[in-house]
């Protein structure tokens, strides 16, 4: 897939621009560009007409909640969430490896559910919240799963690691006492060519203990 070479709107990441500020800053007054407040809720407003809405194929200004902060960015309908995160918001912790949803290196949460950012379009996110690997640590402290991955040497080349961590964090957020089989099931989609699985399993079980 062609890498998006557009100028990043990462300033929104650090300053949390208002939409008005974003519109001014990004100069989105050119014809054919619309602000796309995406998502089901927006479309369900009772004042909306019954007809749907067309966007693109050119640039569209959208807002997206990422790691607790509303971000404004300019995408095309073909921009994947992975590209939006990595190239537009400089959140490069999310890795793209297979780019087809087969390896899960690009795992992020949308409304708390792990999904593949490489085959989710940015326009698909709508009003739902995205959490990336950068949003897992809290108040400057690593998540217990991240700590345990370091302690148990659960990564080698590191490409699968962010996705692997996301899958394990999701498990522990939903299961206090996971079994080894639970950890295996949670990481079933995460491919690691280095073969770090045994350490990943140990790290996750150990993190579960610490989180009790």
């Amino acid at each position: 897939m062609k890498k998006n070479s557009k100028k990043s709107h990462a300033e929104g990441h650090s300053k949390g621009l208002s939409r008005r500020g974003f519109l001014r800053g990004a100069g989105l007054t050119t014809a054919g560009t619309v602000v796309f407040t995406t998502g089901v809720q927006a479309f369900e407003a009772h004042t909306q007409p019954a007809k749907g809405t067309s966007f693109g194929p050119g640039s569209i200004g959208i807002e997206m909640k990422v790691n607790g902060r509303m971000q404004s960015l300019t995408v095309e309908p073909r921009t994947t969430l992975a590209t939006a995160l990595r190239d537009h918001l400089s959140l490069t912790g999310t890795k793209v490896v297979c780019d087809r949803g087969s390896c899960s290196a690009c795992t992020v949460f949308i409304d708390g559910k792990p999904v593949n950012a490489c085959i989710t379009m940015a326009l698909d996110v709508g009003d739902r919240e995205v959490i990336t690997i950068e949003g897992i640590a809290r108040n400057g402290e690593l998540h217990p799963v991240q700590e345990a991955f370091i302690e148990h040497d659960a990564s080698q080349c590191g490409y699968c690691t962010p996705g692997m961590v996301m899958s394990c964090v999701h498990l522990l957020e939903n299961e206090e006492n996971p079994s080894l089989e639970d950890v295996k099931a949670a990481t079933r989609g995460n491919l690691c060519r280095c073969g770090t699985y045994p350490h990943v399993f140990k790290a996750t079980l150990s993190a579960a203990e610490k989180m009790k």
Partner: peptide, 19 residues
């Protein structure tokens, strides 16, 4: 990926008209 536009359909009737 080729460029494409995106139609956000509101109802099945609306979608059918577009595809």
């Amino acid at each position: 990926m080729n460029k494409f536009s995106w139609y956000e359909a509101k109802s099945v009737e609306d979608a059918i008209e577009q595809a």
